[in-house]
Simulated scan of single mutants.
Amino acid sequence: SLQSLRFWSPSRLVEAALKAAVEHRAQGVLVAGGLDDELDALVSLDRAVGLLGCSPREFKRARSLRAVMEAAARSGVATPKAALCRTPGEAAEAARRIGLPAVLKPDRTSGGYGIRVARSLEDIIREFKVVASHSRSHVVLQEYIEGADASVSLIATGQDAVAVSLNQQILGLRELGQLEPLGYSGNITPLRLGRAESEIREACEELCRRLGLRGSIGVDFVVRDGEAYLMEVNPRFQATLECVEEAYGVNLVELHLSALEGKLPEPVKASRYAARLIVYAKQPCRVGYLHDISGVRDVPPPGTTIEKRAPVCSVLSTAQTPEQALRSCLEKAREVYEKTVYSIRSHETGISLRRKALEGAQCL
């Protein structure tokens, strides 16, 4: 019978992780995405096996809006104005104070799902229910910062930190099936920011020190007019892992484990660019044999059925320029679609993809 790949749930993920830990006699668990705001799940994993990295308490601190904004202010990191809202009326009132356009975010985020941009009070009232459906108790209304989406990948010991890489984020690529306006679609590493780069690195390192984080840490931000505005802190491995390793020639898992012993890496320069894109199902589909496509990652078994909007796989490429790396990823994505019933139909689609994905870099 065909396997069915559905959207994940924290309980199923923890159940699968605990089962695998017992089967393989694991000495600990490395946390990637999906559990940032699932404190109960993190506690269960920590008690049963042990988290190799930030503790549940450190996760909670890094995901607390108040704690992060206080640490950012002391670290010299700019933050957008924000307010916690429980009703559409509270959100509308907050928007009058903060200004429009504004961003409505769930109080727990994963890959940008459930985030909406409101350009009027009517938008806020209409979109609040959608965003609240992804939240536990409240919705975050945040000042909208228009600029280039980016992130910093760091290694931290709890007392000190080193920024390994700056990365360009690619969000909301509908051409690859990502229907969420600010949903994660991929990234390009490294991101060159000129004189602003060293300031951003130092500020993010100080932020990690003040939050007392350990291991592999990601800081998401938006760059506007050369200034970085903090969006969120991810106290675990990030989706940029493969690109950072390919571009810089490092092993982030080894650096992560060394940091838990108090050892920080020496700064390393990138030798090339790496790009990674996530290929999402544009409609329910059945996956073909994808292993013969160079650079394909996160591959489901042939015959797996995948629901619309769920990820099919990811594709990775390296090159001497970011444009070349991205172009190669797009070609591989087309091959994936050809093996999953449908395909990208025209050369023009590829051109628009490249233009949109590189728009942030051109603005810099």
Rank of each mutant, 00 (worst) to 15 (best):
Leu2Pro: 13
Gln3Asp: 14
Pro10Lys: 00
Ala26Glu: 03
Arg63His: 12
Val68Glu: 12
Ala72Trp: 04
Ala72Pro: 08
Ala82Pro: 05
Gly89Glu: 07
Arg96Asn: 09
Ile98Val: 07
Leu100His: 04
Ala102Thr: 10
Lys105Gln: 08
Gly114Phe: 01
Ile115Leu: 10
Leu121Pro: 08
Ile124Cys: 01
Glu127Gln: 13
Val131Ile: 07
Ser137Phe: 09
His138Ala: 11
Ile145Pro: 06
Asp149Pro: 11
Leu154Thr: 02
Ile155Cys: 06
Ile155Asn: 07
Asp160Cys: 04
Ala163Ile: 00
Ser165Met: 08
Leu173Thr: 15
Gln178Arg: 15
Leu182His: 08
Leu182Ala: 04
Ser185His: 12
Gly194Thr: 05
Glu197Asn: 06
Asp225Tyr: 07
Tyr229His: 15
Arg236Leu: 01
Glu245Ala: 02
Ala247Val: 05
Asn251Leu: 02
Glu254Phe: 11
Ser258Thr: 03
Ala259Lys: 00
Val268Asn: 10
Ala270Cys: 04
Arg272Leu: 07
Pro284Met: 01
Pro284Trp: 00
Gly288Pro: 05
Leu290His: 08
Ile293Cys: 08
Ser294Lys: 14
Pro301Ala: 14
Ala310Gly: 04
Ala325Phe: 03
Ala325Val: 03
Ser328Trp: 09
Lys332Phe: 05
Tyr342Gly: 00
His347Met: 14
Gly360Lys: 03
